[in-house]
Design a protein around this nucleic acid. Sequence first.
DNA 1: TTGTAAGCGTTATCAA
DNA 2: TTGATAACGCTTACAA
Lengths: 359, 359
Amino acid sequence: MKKNLKNAPASTSPPAKATIADVARTAGVSKATVSRFLNHRDTLLSKDIATRVEVAIAALAYSPSPMAQALKRGRSKLIGLVVADVSNPFSVALLRGAEKACQQAGYLIMLFNLADDDAREQEAIETLSAYQVEGFILNTLGHDGGAAATAIRHGKPVVLIDRRHHDLQVDFVSLDNTGAMRLAIDHLVERGFSNMLYVTDPIKGVSTREERESAFHRWILNQQSSDSKIVGRTLECPSDKAEQLDEGLRALHASAPRGQAAVVTSNAVTSLRVVASMARLKLRLGMDIGLVGIDETDWAPYVGPGLSTIAQPTGELGRIAANSLIERLKGQTPPPRQILLSGELISRGSSRSDAPSAN
Amino acid sequence: MKKNLKNAPASTSPPAKATIADVARTAGVSKATVSRFLNHRDTLLSKDIATRVEVAIAALAYSPSPMAQALKRGRSKLIGLVVADVSNPFSVALLRGAEKACQQAGYLIMLFNLADDDAREQEAIETLSAYQVEGFILNTLGHDGGAAATAIRHGKPVVLIDRRHHDLQVDFVSLDNTGAMRLAIDHLVERGFSNMLYVTDPIKGVSTREERESAFHRWILNQQSSDSKIVGRTLECPSDKAEQLDEGLRALHASAPRGQAAVVTSNAVTSLRVVASMARLKLRLGMDIGLVGIDETDWAPYVGPGLSTIAQPTGELGRIAANSLIERLKGQTPPPRQILLSGELISRGSSRSDAPSAN
DNA sequence: TTGTAAGCGTTATCAA
DNA sequence: TTGATAACGCTTACAA
């Protein structure tokens, strides 16, 4: 009988983690009792037996196998987090926020990184579902709501971060894009800039990009009513078309007197692309072209004269997303919510037309 | 009987993923046969039955539950990756490399982020073990080899990245720290710098830090033999002691004529701290103090006059670590290996004493 | 070549 | 209040 092996000197193999059966045996009770002790400590329990079980558990350093529990319960204490690209600092900050919230609630995050490959969305959902994750936090490209829809079809609750899908009745957590953009525009105007260019990844129906772009124009219009000189255009520029960006910036610089041209970027990666382009064009941040970018990063203060940014409360976004999900996992079913968090302007040299060069 | 429910209209609940039993039933065979079809397609299989099973699987869109498989086999197709801090770009690059390799081999990575809290090391190992990960890739602080040792005690193979533990007989993958440091020193000397300061996180017995620091001094000594003017000191500086760093840099700058003082940093985070400190001191990168930092990043080209760096092949490190592990999971047991990869010098303005300010 | 049945580590239903 | 026992979805001897 296998069982006896457990008491043998056991050669050099690992001490074979204790199971509920082991605990039951050494406590002299049934498995059911041990399980009850674990899951229904409050109800049904004679003091005597309870302590015997407790002692046995401690002695064997027993802890239940989440895999077995998952199999039996159909729940796994696992939450799936799908991100478009871990290389993006935004995703990492999200992860950290979500992780913290999950940890407190006893959940573990399974991360699936799309590595910017949309095609893997379905795969991500399927894979994570197979591992019995109880719900999803999605921050994917999601040109359609496909991934989210699949998740829902699997019967798992979903929270969307940053990318909205209006046809899906799910929780949605995001930066208040409209407000954030207003912060950027108003700040630039106040600093004397009047000729603005919004540089974004190709919009392609991604909600965040749409919202930011339309907000950009709305606030430009708004400013125009008090100063007709103020104008704004959009440049959609894929990341592999550096020349296109160069051309856009060159034109911007040429078309506006010194101190009037400014760029607003849609995220940290785009900001860096603009910085790179300006370096190629030998244009100076702030002095030649102003810049405010969405997303704060560690390095923003030290690039050129310092990058002015709209900081997203990224960790918060992750935390709130996780908590909303966990709430639903606990059985609550509030109507789908939209939670928008405000951004914060951090003003640095790149939005001062008289900015000194740093270092 | 529960089973019958499956054929009922099933209200609005999810379509309840097909199980092996469902497949067996619709194919008119036993579960064992389906399992065989899945796992031993080559051997034992009558053409007729094989196709019936195949059809049924397709029809039901069946795929086996990894959880159940894990429970039965004791193997899960999961690999645990423990990183000290996901915020560190190094960790992310690692993750991406490892992820890719794992994906190709059909493994999934479970990430556990210590968030720089050493105390959670054991927890990480225990948690991941409980989820039946088959092996570990560890990039932790690991002041002792505790975590790795625990993993090994659990009987799971381990690969260490970047942090070595000599007493542990496991695979180890890392940058060739000695070679990397030589690249840095020789480059700085060639550029005319002679008074060097190595800025590092507190060494505290972390192998990488020790190796880099001692290599720093070795190559300084080596250069000294041809030019006695060349000197080097170490500054161990915890991240919450900015004044200490300021003081160190001030002293360095004061003690050396223009164009002679240079700093070497131990990683990207430290580089940024040095950049911040210099900004506070109003010192110019390159001109006042030279800088070469280990770790290349997206933003390195655009900070000040551009940061000179020693780029680690980070993705490669992750890939190799994953592959080594997978090899062992497949049953091979080569003796423990050390794999050291070379760094690459990327020279920018921060190591030119006549560097122009950027932007 | 296929099927039967036991068992992986749990939880939950039912008796006792 | 406790203990058998049957699942959960899968793999694998062992029989047929």
